[in-house]
Design a protein around this nucleic acid. Structure first.
Lengths: 349, 349
DNA sequence: CTGTTAGCGCATTCAA
DNA sequence: TTGAATGCGCTAACAG
């Protein structure tokens, strides 16, 4: 049962140089004559040599591993429910592919934010993997137990969807601006009673979005009617309750911005049941997961650049590990609003 | 430097035993006095020790890594299109969680089946990662370039969705039976002209499904009309073309089994455009991805146990690596048919 | 039952 | 510009 595979030693022998020289060449280090480089490259190609991740990590200081941490319960619920949340897919697409470009791997892990052993869970993953960087997604991005642990350990990290400045790369879209755009879209359609359904307070971006909604109203000189703000927690049930309330007001809302697709779909069902078409109750949602295109009517939605955020996070972490200086400590990526049938001109407007 | 973390050495010192004894305890090996075990466990808990994956792989013969290989183009297309394919999510749910139970990690990688360098790509991943096992998904499951490479390398692997016997664990559902059940469902509803839209020939299970459909017809003594079989390739376009043909026959089909959701949705659009309700053109699909619940009418579908298959694959590979004997070399997991609005009693039946 | 010895494949010192 | 030592954290093989 010998380890049959080709190692740096074989390459060195083939090229007639020392181990060290091979190491230098494959790591693009200076101080190797072009001619020797050539020989080494030829030997690598001939033998099909690929360095062992484990050995690299043992000898050197890098592991070529990025760890992506997602919320356990929420992710598993999403998978089980089959509701089509494609957050994980988009993360993989952005993060994994970017890692691949640089010879890195992304390892995807679930940890439980609510558990008292978050720290232990994260610490265990780190001890075992020794990643060069960690990508945090909401709500972990705003969990000080996690961020402080990473700071203590000196592991670079990126916070996705966390608008707050602070340690680690902050990668986000402008959630406030997005809510503003969504609200404007409805106001432009002639709606004047535009409601808002918030997300869970556990997510810092929930507050940002609410603020954006308020800014849009203020800019038009509209009153900020607190009864138009429904408190949700991203769940279908909370969306249904909020929509029910909004449409039952003495002066009902004729449009709403929901902080995610689940709540928007709930709102749509409420509207449908009450016989309210888009002219009587328009809806704009956040997320733009696949299912919104198949609702009736399809949902107008804010499209979040999840893949782009994951990609940016991976890139910054890799560059930082590579020793690059002067990296920006925050990046705000562009979003867009996809107009579909769920938003229409207000009745009588 | 940052090599701060607690290693087996610290644990050994703390417990007052040798490195080897600690190693034995954390690996659940025999020949350690309970009392000593106790001491070691206490030291591990006290120091928060977690073994380094990389070091384990260097010293020992296991890497605690499983490699899951998916088709590059198809996966990325799925992600980009936002059509809600949740194959990857289900794989992660089944495979990753099972790995977690055993201290393993699953690394997800994309390789291009059509490329002339499939072998090189797979070889590179293996050389770098040295996984204890590889999980193959269609169409890789039936790609001899890959399976033979793995056999040569002596790496255990599992083939998901590959009905054929052969080297490696064959994990599948009974695709033929499923097609039979789907066809029966339509026949039971009184349809007599039941069509079938095949998947790509590149997938071995496409043939299985077609056979199942034929068996169902034969069992009822119905003629096998070749014009009722549309050739598809899993794409929307191919589904639309096939549905168009089926509904345009002199004696048109009044129902169809489509080999995946995309083609079923295409068929649904064709039917809707032609004004054919489920009584005139019923549809059953394979996959049951999230979006089928949001179609109008929602699609009746065969639900594939993807998570269960990934879980079984991971478990068998882990157990094999652990040295277990007498593992089954194939497992067939149960599927189910989820009846929804797209299938209904035939008009006049 | 337990400890000792010898690597695994590489990067990081150094020395030449 | 190159090469020779050293050790990362762990397990396998063998001693005791």
């Amino acid at each position: 049962m010998r380890r049959q595979s080709v190692t740096i030693k074989h390459v060195a022998a083939e090229a007639g140089v020392s181990l060290q020289t091979v190491s230098r060449v494959i790591n693009n280090e200076p101080n190797v004559r072009p001619q020797v480089q050539e020989r080494v490259h030829a030997a690598v190609a001939k033998l099909g040599y690929v360095p062992s991740l484990a050995a690299r990590r043992m000898g050197g200081s890098r592991s070529y591993l990025l760890l992506a941490l997602n919320d356990r319960d929420r992710t598993i619920d999403g998978w089980k429910s089959g509701e089509g949340t494609d957050w994980v897919d988009q993360m993989l697409m952005g993060g994994m592919l970017k890692c691949g470009e640089h010879g890195y791997r992304m390892i995807f892990e679930l940890v439980d934010t609510h558990s008292s052993h978050v720290e232990r869970e994260v610490q265990a993953a780190i001890s075992s993997l020794r990643p060069d960087g960690v990508i945090l997604t909401p709500p972990h991005s705003d969990n000080p137990l996690i961020t402080e642990l990473l700071i203590r350990q000196g592991i670079p990290f990126a916070r996705i969807g966390s608008p707050q400045p602070g340690e680690g790369f902050a990668i986000s879209m402008d959630d406030g601006k997005a809510a503003e755009v969504a609200t404007d879209h409805l106001l432009d359609l002639g709606h004047t009673r535009v409601g808002f359904i918030t997300g869970s307070d556990e997510y810092a971006l929930s507050g940002e979005r609410l603020e954006g909604y308020r800014r849009a109203l203020r800019r038009r000189g509209l009153p900020e009617d607190e009864s138009l703000v429904g408190r949700g927690d991203f769940s279908y049930a909370s969306g249904a309750a909020a929509a029910e309330a909004l449409t039952s007001l003495p002066d009902p809302a004729t449009a709403v911005v929901a902080s995610n697709d689940q709540m928007a779909i709930a709102a749509l069902q409420v509207a449908t049941r009450k016989g309210l078409g888009p002219d009587r109750f328009s809806i704009v949602s956040f997320d733009n997961t696949p299912i919104v295109r198949f609702c009736h009517p399809p949902l107008t939605a804010i499209n979040q650049p999840i893949a782009a955020m994951a990609s940016a996070a991976a890139e910054l972490l890799i560059r930082k590990t590579a020793g690059e200086q002067d990296l920006p400590d925050a990046r705000v990526l562009p979003f867009d609003l996809v107009a579909r049938g769920s938003s229409a001109s207000a009745a009588g407007a």
